[in-house]
Write a protein that binds this DNA or RNA. Structure first.
Lengths: 177, 177
DNA sequence: TATTGTTATACTCTATAACTATA
DNA sequence: TATAGTTATAGAGTATAACAATA
């Protein structure tokens, strides 16, 4: 395993021109997300659906999506799955379903006071877990990594609807507001 | 969605001191990997197990892991699952199982000529897909992102085995190369 | 006794389809 | 007719356990 490690580290230290082997990027993303999931899963422990639950709660509080569907789309979760997730958080008193007066089909998911408090606690734990996760990267570079990662993710977020294959094309182009 | 986009972009452009909201990092990783998977899945098309198959083949060729178990560990795949995957690639003539003379329990997975040729073709497609995926990030920063991502992933790769336990700090401080 | 690899089974997660209500 | 949300069912993917061979 140590030999493996040496090999791997060698790849990372390759010349700056050749942008690393082709499989590197996907492997890095996969490995890092796996570790992130494992650690954050342990960190948030009691939260209903682990890392996914944390992301849902986090998105609900900070992005205030206008509907369950919007929330699901933002997180790349199927609408039918989102129903179960929200059910759990409602049952736990972390969020509430509110009917949108403008569109009575839609339900806005809003956090309860307890939901906000729980999220604050989770945020603190998650930050600690992430700091540990990125321990191998220097602090200044860590910020750069997070920034670029967010930039890259935001850059493709809109394309999600197109890429989700055939069925959802026209909607993505529609004006939401 | 457009409004959403604006909000999101605004987050990315926040002050450099406050390192972005707590949920940002996990969301970025998740969203980016999802998009990467979707695009690479489409790019490699005929390859047996999609993105996972690509990563396996890529790892087999470039890392020459000493056993199936090592290969599985590196990719975070269960041993039992790896058996199915290798079965498929062997059947497709992309890799071969070779008995390790030093340890007759172990089987080294080595690429066939065809396997190498297929990987080369896939690499080219994947690079194109990744370039498209990271279109929102400037080229210079793109290289930085890939480098830091690999560095972060390699930094936690060794901890995978310990991961069940809580404390993972000391290993991250180890010399990477 | 521990580890590699295989196989069979069970479980979890996710997607598909059908339904109601609103637009 | 199309969309938001719910529910039920089926499928894919994954882990768990038992096994044989080797260390």
């Amino acid at each position: 395993m140590n030999q493996d490690t040496a090999t791997v580290a060698g790849r990372g230290a390759s010349t700056p021109e050749a942008p690393a082997p082709a499989g590197e990027f996907g492997w890095s993303l996969t490995a890092l997300l796996r570790e992130w999931t494992a650690r954050v899963e342990a960190a948030v422990g009691d939260l209903p659906h682990g890392t996914r639950g944390y992301l849902v709660l986090s998105t609900v509080v900070r992005d205030t999506p206008p509907s369950q569907a919007a929330l699901a789309a933002r997180l790349g979760i199927d609408r039918t799955v989102m129903t179960y997730l929200i059910d759990a958080y409602v049952k736990d008193g972390l969020v509430e379903r509110q009917q949108d007066p403008a569109d009575r089909r839609a339900r806005r998911i809003v956090p309860t006071e307890r939901g906000r408090a729980v999220l604050a606690e989770m945020d603190s734990r998650v930050r600690a877990a992430e700091a540990d996760l990125l321990g191998g990267v220097e602090e200044a570079e860590r910020a750069v990594l997070c920034r670029l990662l967010a930039q890259a993710a935001n850059g493709v977020a809109h394309d999600e609807d197109h890429c989700a294959a055939v069925a959802t094309g026209p909607l993505a182009a529609r004006e939401p507001g």
